[in-house]
Design a binder for these strands. Structure first.
Length: 445
RNA sequence: GGCCCCAUCGUCUAACGGUUAGGACACGGCUCUUUCAAGGCCGGAGCGCGGGUUCGAUUCCCGCUGGGGCCA
C-alpha cells in the first residue's frame, strides 16, 4: 500500500539463504499466496540463493577495508565463554578476539583452510534508529557485539544478505514487523560499513493470535492458504489485515483496494501489536460479498456448487436471494446447488416440529391449487397459498414451513415464495409430491 | 539474564491537554418478518497502577506492573 501510495517500486525478494528452513516449495507457497492476495510487485522475484556472488564480494570488500574480520573460535570455545559469563552473572558478548589477528595472518589461516566466520567490527558508539512509527530509538554500543555476517560454511546470514541486497536494490523504505526493531542497529552499522545510504525504517506492530502468541512468519503463507480454503476472499483478507494497525480515521472499515492505495499513510499506523480476530474477518468477508457484482460473486461461488448449478439467469437471481445469507463463496455455492438438485433428505427437527397429521392433505390441496396458479411468480404464489390456508382454516405458517421443507430440505433460508418462483413450477411441484410421499410413508397414512 | 518495543471496551480501533471517551466485531434486547439472515434502533462493556508537569490529564514526563520482541 505504501509503495502504491507513494508511486514507488515494490520489489519482491525471497530470502532463502537458510538452507535448513528454505525449500523450493516454501518459496512457491509465498509466491502463490502473494498472487492470490492480489499483491502486485513491480520487480522480482529475486532469490537470495542465486545472489551468493554479491554477498561474497561484499564480505571480501569489508574484510579488505578492515570493517569486518575473520574469527577462528570453534563453537565449543564460544560455548565455554558463554557458560563462563553466565556463571559470573555477566551478559555474554563475543570477546572480539578476532579483531586482534593481523590481517596477513588471518589471510594465511583462511587459505590454509582454518574454519572461521566473518564478523562485523561494530563501532563503539550508540546507534540511533530513526523509525517512522516509533520515533528515535537508541541502542547503546555495549548492547551489541560483533555479529556474524558469514558462517563457517560460507553461507551469508540473514542480516548480511538483507542489507547487501537493500543497498544493491537501492531500497528507500524498510517496512517490517516490530520483531526486527532490535536488529536494526546491526543493519544501520552494516549500511555504514558498506558505504550505502541508510533507508527509512518503519516497524509495524506484530500480529498476534487469539492466544496472544505471535502469528509466526513460518506459518504465514500456510495460513493465507487456509483462509482461502475456508472461503475468505482475498480483498477481505487484505482489507482486514490493513486495518490491523492502520485506520483511515473516519470510521470507515470496508475499503476497496483503490481506496486503501489512495489513502494509506504511515502517519496513521499505530505501534501496538494487534490480535487477529477470525470472527471479524468473517464479517468483513460478508461485507465484501454484499458489495460484489452478482456476476462476479457467481463466478467465485460456482466452483463450490459441487452438486449442480442452475441455469445462469436462475443462478444470478439465487445470488441475490442468498448474498445476505452466505458469508463465503463456499456457502453460496452450496445454496446454488439446492436449485439444481432435489433434496435427498429433510431436516429431522423440521420433520418433527412442522409435519403434523394434517400436513400431507394440506400440501395436496396446495399442489392442486399450484397446478393452475399463473403466473408462476411471487405475486401469484403467495396469495394462492394464503388462500388455501384460509379455506382450510389453518394459519399460513402451517403451510409455509412444510413447503419450505419440501422444496429445500431445510427449515431456514431465503423467502419461500422467491425460492418457489425460482425453482419453476415443474420442479417445485415435483419436490412437493416427493415430500408428500415421504411423509405418507413415514406416518403410514 | 541484558537490551528494545508496546499499553483506550473481550477483540480491532478513533481521539493529536478541556469530548456525556466515538465507531466496528462479538454479546443482549427491540424492530422488520413465513423461517434464517441482512438491515435499522437500543443496551451492557474501556482510558492498567503510582507519581509528577499543568488551571486542567486517556493524551506530556518518570517509575511500576503487564504483554511482546531481539540477542544469547
Amino acid at each position: 500500500l505504501f509503495a502504491r501510495r507513494e508511486g514507488g517500486t515494490h520489489i519482491l525478494r525471497i530470502e532463502d539463504t537458510d538452507v535448513e528452513r528454505s525449500r523450493e516449495e516454501l518459496s512457491q507457497q509465498v509466491l502463490s499466496a502473494m498472487d492470490w492476495l492480489g499483491v502486485p510487485y513491480d520487480e522480482g522475484p529475486y532469490f537470495q540463493s542465486k545472489r551468493y556472488d554479491l554477498y561474497r564480494a561484499a564480505a571480501q570488500r569489508l574484510l579488505a577495508e578492515g570493517k569486518a574480520y575473520r574469527a577462528f573460535e570453534t563453537p565449543e570455545e564460544l560455548d565455554a565463554e558463554r557458560k563462563k559469563a553466565e556463571a559470573q552473572g555477566r551478559a555474554y558478548r563475543y570477546s572480539g578476539a578476532g579483531r586482534q589477528i593481523d590481517p596477513g595472518e588471518s589471510e594465511r589461516r583462511a587459505r590454509a583452510g582454518d574454519r572461521h566466520v566473518i564478523r562485523l567490527a561494530m563501532p563503539a558508539e550508540t546507534i540511533v534508529v530513526d523509525d517512522l512509527i516509533r520515533g528515535r530509538v537508541e541502542f547503546p554500543a555495549d548492547a551489541l557485539d560483533d555479529f556474524v555476517l558469514v558462517r563457517s560454511d560460507g553461507h551469508p546470514l540473514y542480516h548480511f544478505s538483507a542489507v547487501v541486497d537493500d543497498a544493491d536494490m537501492k531500497i528507500s523504505h524498510v517496512i517490517r514487523g516490530d520483531d526486527h526493531l532490535a536488529n536494526t542497529p546491526k543493519h544501520v552499522a552494516l549500511f555504514r560499513a558498506l558505504g550505502a545510504p541508510i533507508p527509512k525504517f518503519a516497524h509495524l506492530g506484530m500480529i498476534l493470535g487469539t492466544d496472544r502468541k505471535k502469528l509466526s512468519k513460518r506459518h504465514g503463507a500456510a495460513a493465507v492458504e487456509e483462509w482461502r480454503d475456508q472461503g475468505i476472499l482475498p480483498e477481505a483478507l487484505v482489507n482486514f489485515l490493513a486495518l490491523l494497525g492502520w485506520a483511515p480515521g473516519d470510521n470507515r472499515e470496508v475499503l476497496t483496494r483503490e481506496e486503501m492505495e489512495r489513502e494509506f499513510s504511515l502517519d496513521r499506523v499505530g505501534a501496538s501489536p494487534s490480535v487477529f480476530d477470525p470472527e471479524k474477518l468473517l464479517w468483513m468477508n460478508a461485507q465484501h460479498m454484499a458489495r460484489m457484482p452478482a456476476e462476479e460473486l457467481l463466478a467465485r461461488s460456482e466452483p463450490y456448487a459441487t452438486s449442480g448449478m442452475p441455469p445462469k439467469d436462475a443462478a444470478l437471481k439465487a445470488i441475490e436471494l442468498h448474498r445476505t445469507r452466505a458469508r463465503t463463496p463456499i456457502e453460496m455455492g452450496r445454496a446454488l446447488s439446492t436449485y439444481a438438485r432435489d433434496p435427498e433428505s429433510y431436516d429431522p427437527d423440521g420433520m418433527k416440529k412442522q409435519v403434523k397429521p394434517e400436513t400431507a392433505a394440506l400440501l395436496e390441496k396446495l399442489m392442486a391449487r399450484y397446478e393452475t396458479t399463473s403466473p408462476w411468480a411471487v405475486e401469484a404464489l403467495e396469495p394462492a397459498l394464503r388462500q388455501v390456508a384460509e379455506e382450510s382454516g389453518v394459519s399460513a405458517s402451517k403451510l409455509i414451513h412444510p413447503t419450505r421443507l419440501a422444496l429445500t430440505g431445510t427449515t431456514v433460508g431465503a423467502p419461500l415464495f422467491d425460492v418457489a418462483a425460482l425453482l419453476g413450477k415443474e420442479t417445485a411441484l415435483r419436490r412437493l409430491r416427493k415430500f408428500v410421499e415421504v411423509i405418507r410413508t413415514q406416518t403410514g397414512s
